[in-house]
Amino acid sequence: GIPATNLSRVAGLEKQLAIELKVKQGAENMIQTYSNGSTKDRKLLLTAQQMLQDSKTKIDIIRMQLRRALQ
């Protein structure tokens, strides 16, 4: 079985993952909103794209940590 310490770690990672998935969803929504907007929305679009990139990276890292914890 999986050690108890790993189980609480997994629960924490799953919570983090859920949050990051919401951030990713929000960033994707912002990108959709701003991509057909005016030029003043360009900065917001770039910010949203950066957020999305960061979020995807975090999600990958969390998933990797989850896999390790579940081994």
Rank of each mutant, 00 (worst) to 15 (best):
S38I: 10
L21F: 04
D60S: 14
N6E: 10
G37L: 04
R42T: 11
R67C: 14
M30C: 08
A11H: 08
N36R: 04
S55C: 13
L21T: 03
D54F: 04
L45V: 04
L44H: 05
V10S: 02
I31Q: 01
I2S: 10
L45A: 02
S35W: 09
K56Q: 12
L21R: 02
M51K: 04
K15M: 10
L66E: 01
Q50I: 08
I19K: 09
A48G: 02
S55P: 00
T39G: 09
L45Q: 02
Q50N: 06
N29K: 14
D41A: 03
Q49E: 05
L13V: 00
L70H: 04
D60Q: 10
D54Y: 04
G37K: 06
D60T: 12
D41F: 04
D41T: 03
L46N: 05
L17H: 01
L21V: 04
N36K: 10
K15C: 14
Q25W: 07
Q71I: 13
L13Q: 00
Q32I: 12
R68Y: 10
P3Y: 02
Q16H: 03
L45I: 03
L70G: 05
M64G: 10
L70S: 06
T33W: 14
I31H: 01
L52I: 02
K40Q: 12
K15Y: 07
Q25G: 02
T39P: 07
A27N: 02
K40H: 11
S8Y: 04
G37P: 07
I19L: 10
Q53S: 09
S55I: 06
L45S: 01
E14K: 14
K56F: 04
T39N: 07
L52Y: 06
N6L: 07
E20V: 07
I62K: 00
A11L: 12
R67E: 11
L46G: 03
M51S: 03
K22D: 05
M64Y: 07
E28N: 02
V10L: 07
A27T: 03
R67S: 09
D60N: 14
A69V: 07
Q49T: 06
E20D: 01
M30N: 03
L45H: 02
Q53A: 12
P3H: 10
L44R: 07
P3D: 11
R68S: 11
M30P: 00
L44M: 12
Q32A: 13
K22W: 06
T5F: 11
M51C: 05
L7M: 12
S8R: 07
Q53T: 08
N29P: 00
T47Q: 15
T5E: 13
G37Y: 01
E28W: 06
G37H: 04
R68T: 11
A18L: 09
K22H: 05
S38N: 10
Q65K: 08
T33Y: 14
Q71E: 08
K58Q: 05
E14V: 14
I2D: 12
L45M: 05
A4H: 06
K22Y: 04
I62P: 00
L13R: 00
M51F: 04
D60G: 10
